[in-house]
Design a protein around this nucleic acid. Structure first.
Lengths: 195, 195
DNA sequence: CGGATCGTTGATCAACTTCAACGGTCGTGG
DNA sequence: CCACGACCGTTGAAGTTGATCAACGATCCG
């Protein structure tokens, strides 16, 4: 039995033999990145997918106004890549950056394809991973449509209070979809209300 | 060889034997719905997933102001369900309605689970389906964040000009995330520009 | 210690919503 | 097949929300 975070996560969804566990672990590579370091830069070929074992990542792009727009975070046990570019091994439309010192398990698209053929149970595992990610993404779209930004802010901070502490406000503002100035105003409003 | 749309779609991604094709087809049920008819109503248990073979569907919910908010369409060869509720066989947060006369292939969650165990290649097929859906959804989130609504409107109408003709304006407006009145204004503006 | 970046504040402005009223059209029952 | 009612799309006025810009103080990092 392995107690590696990746294996723990996989075997929550499918069973693997000891031999298969060994194969899986042998195909991934452990990498660490310092705070603010890039795992992928916009315009580069996206060869890798990352499984976060420590720290956190952000996925962002530069919008037409030249500002960084964060659209995704990844904490421990989350997968992260520019999925569209990864699948085609094409140019990425996003950058991936470490928000803190991170530890990730990395595998290339090519290796992963081989691994999926060798261990077909992994298809089931990834089917479940993507299915959850997709349904979460739809829920998020629902929120983006209907929640006034103020409510979206409250919602997010009450769901992930510790996480909100860890990241720069401007990154949070851009993820929530509004300007840093407006976030500032909301924070002020909230602290006044509490008194 | 079957030339059923569902089988054609599956065998684009994975190979199936004749026997397996027969099994797959036997587990799905063909259903038709009239325009405006509901395939699922908000609050009901979501037992089914639908594969559209003719016509089109919308996924929507009622927001806090009591208005219908459409967040997803499904055309031919698209899958449709309230994925989160489907996976848990729980109460749906969405309704699914036919925008035109539709033909769908239906399967229950229970049947699909059995089928996946019998024909493991289908795990690979659904892995790919969800992976694409997820990456498309992320791209959509990107658009929602950055595109001014006017640009989003142009983008959508140029991508799906025929489709825009087929659906009521208020449904389109809600999908694009703005009021029918504003859509009206945009349309007027565009037709003036063309002259 | 020094420079650059970050968060805050206030003023102005644009995008989009809401509301109310009107004409057109769609589909339903007679 | 027609007539009526309901709903849909359009228009304009008034009101909100949140962006932008500029300026300042704080803080982080080298």
């Amino acid at each position: 039995m392995s107690n590696h975070p990746l294996i723990i996560h996989i075997t929550k969804h499918v069973n693997l033999t000891e031999a298969q566990i060994a194969i899986v672990l042998s195909r991934f590579q452990l990498q660490t990145f310092a705070k603010k370091e890039h795992l992928l830069k916009e315009g580069n070929i996206c060869k890798n997918i990352f499984f976060v074992t420590k720290g956190c990542l952000r996925l962002y792009f530069i919008n037409e106004k030249g500002q960084e727009q964060t659209i995704q975070f990844a904490l421990e046990t989350w997968w992260m890549t520019d999925l569209m570019a990864f699948e085609k091994s094409g140019e990425s439309g996003f950058s991936i950056q470490a928000l803190e010192k991170v530890e990730v398990m990395v595998i290339t698209h090519e290796s992963l394809e081989k691994l999926l053929l060798e261990i077909p149970q992994l298809e089931r595992y990834f089917r479940k991973v993507y299915q959850r990610a997709y349904s979460a993404s739809l829920l998020r779209v629902k929120y983006l449509y209907t929640m006034p930004k103020e409510v979206f802010y409250e919602h997010f901070t009450s769901l992930y209070p510790e996480f909100v502490q860890r990241i720069p406000q401007k990154v949070l503002a851009s993820f929530l979809g509004f300007s840093p100035e407006y976030l500032s105003e909301l924070r002020k409003k909230k602290t006044l209300e509490k008194k």
